[in-house]
Design a protein around this nucleic acid. Structure first.
Lengths: 339, 339
DNA sequence: ATAGATTGGTATAACGTTATATCAACTGTC
DNA sequence: GACAGTTGATATAACGTTATACCAATCTAT
């Protein structure tokens, strides 16, 4: 029963040393054309595939990247991940994606696994809680790390975030320009920093224009939650005519709720989303939203990590990418306009 | 500048040998309570995390699983992956998910990466083309492998599939029972084996009941494609009153198309999906579909792989999981019934 | 013809672990 | 107080690579 082929297997088949085979495979060193061909033939013949683990260990070149995020299934995150994978795979890295579910215990376990196996680099969305203690761990291992979406405590990491405040400023201004006076901020879990920034942007614009402060209504960032909570929100605050949403998923849920109750998004209620996931453009009606281009965001994230890997000495950098208003059909002037 | 901590670092800090540290960490061998505590303190102090790579290489115990699939972004696949990850992570494995995009070149490249780095096991949906040649590669490495959804050429792999034919039999029978006579099979790429099986099931029921054979209308398995193709299908075949869809995504697209043109799914056109992704229940109207419980399917897949890893000697097994009809609101009797 | 450079390859040690063998220091037994 | 048995630790080799040093053979220039 033959074992899996190693350099030894190939070397014996080609009648050369393992060092020679290694050089042929990596294209380094000085090898005659003749032996090169002979070795490559042997590689094919025995179905040899290099052991990345051993190679990484010896050479110190790690090609495995870990991505730890709070919710894989969320479509926004999925699109980001897709961008990350595309870019890193093209650069020859292997990406392992793990889901912390925003649970500190799971986060710690996954992080230890990644640090132990994916020493090439780390892309990390810190969980809502218990992230401070694990930062020490990452720092001690000197794994190139880029955090994103949520800020860690330590400033030693590169970070890619979103211009949350400015984004909701634009969104709210757009609704106010349309004539809306009673605006709600809809969705998101209570203490998430990015959400608080978004609420801030919304509140600021309303204050500047002398309009009443937003009704703030938290709920999970899912379509189902948006669908279920919209009715309650409108019942509690019947004067609200427009929604700034914390994410496209709750916005899409709100759209569904309107559809089910026979109301028209865009006239009965204006809805503006956040993220611009693919489904936003396909909804009924197509969703006006603050686009952060999640796929492109993912690619940018990947680029940032690759640069960090190449230049470990550079001081940590932090960027915030802007969101742009994409006008579709879920917003319009309020139906009944009272002085 | 301190390097990342290794067994050496811990050993020096605790004043013992590396062998001792290793034994303490793995809980093997005979170690006094006193040294055990001393070592654990040192581990904490230097923030040591074991190198999974080196450990795996020496012990031959691989804890990294590769998952290669034709499209990660597809929600059905995403739910399957979620089930796989949950189960395998609980068993202490690290899962790397790669996307072949149904492209033979990408598939081969990814497969070599996985074989080289994720020697613990492989979960694989063979790409539409070019899969035969890479099977040799996998076989030669003796990596425990389970294929799913699509059958490979070799019968040497474990396989988990779906009872496609029986599923569309049920779906079609349901529509026929409601009184539909002109039924279309909607969606899916042309030569995919599973789709052909599904069409077969549909065709068989119609033949048994003396009804005309289904209109078969291929299109990509996406919401956008479903949305765009429905109009063309109905224009070309105006007598069609019901759709058996190749997946929930095209079905959801069809629902959107109806919504946009002011028609009622369930009365103007009956639509039955396939998969039962989470959005199916949230659609307008909620989608009747053949449920294969994607999350559970993923867990089952993971279990199958774990069993294969534990018992490498067992002969390869193949299972087909059944789909069950979930009645929601997108199906009803046809509007105009002609003899 | 001979020193020096070039070409084509090999031997060897190391990466961070763990399995195996080994060993010194105690125990208890008769 | 000599013997086996137990306890608690260590030295060493190996996993599959690759970086380094090295060497023999051939070539170039004087």
């Amino acid at each position: 029963m033959s074992q899996r082929p190693t350099l030894q297997t190939v070397a014996r088949a080609a009648g050369v040393s393992t060092a020679t085979v290694s050089q042929v495979i990596r294209g380094s060193g000085r090898i005659s054309e003749e032996t090169r061909k002979r070795v490559l033939r042997a590689v094919k013949q025995v179905n040899y595939v290099p052991d990345g683990r051993a190679s990484a260990m010896r050479s110190g070149q790690f090609r495995e990247i870990g991505l730890l995020i709070h919710e894989i299934a969320n479509p926004f995150n999925a699109e980001v991940i897709s961008g990350v994978s595309d870019h890193l795979e093209n650069e020859g890295y292997l990406v392992s994606v793990l889901d912390s579910r925003d649970d500190p215990v799971r986060q710690r376990r996954h992080l230890e696994t990644l640090i132990g196996s994916a020493r090439g680099g780390l892309l990390w969305v810190p969980a809502q809680e218990g992230s401070e203690e694990v930062e020490r761990l990452i720092l001690a291992q000197r794994v190139p790390t880029v955090t994103f979406l949520r800020r860690p405590h330590s400033r030693a990491f590169d970070h890619v975030g979103i211009e949350n405040r400015e984004a909701t400023r634009q969104a709210t201004a757009h609704l106010a320009d349309l004539g809306h006076r009673h605006i709600a901020f809809f969705g998101g879990d209570k203490d998430v920093e990015s959400r608080l920034d978004r609420i801030e942007g919304c509140r600021a614009v309303l204050a500047e224009r002398g309009l009443p402060p937003p009704v703030v209504w938290p709920c999970p960032d899912s379509k189902r939650a948006g669908l279920e909570h919209l009715g309650r929100l409108l019942q509690a605050h019947p004067r609200v005519t427009a929604l700034v949403c914390n994410g496209d998923m709750v916005a899409l849920g709100a759209l569904q709720a309107l559809l089910r109750s026979g109301r028209q998004a865009g006239s009965d209620l204006s809805v503006i989303g956040f993220d611009d996931i693919q489904d936003a453009a396909l909804a009924m009606p197509p969703l006006t939203t603050m686009s952060v281009q999640p796929y492109q965001l993912g690619r940018r994230l990947a680029r940032t990590l690759v640069e960090r890997i190449r230049e470990p000495g550079l001081p940590p950098a932090s960027v915030a990418v802007p969101a742009t208003l994409v006008r579709r059909e879920s917003c319009g002037p309020p139906k009944t306009q009272k002085g």
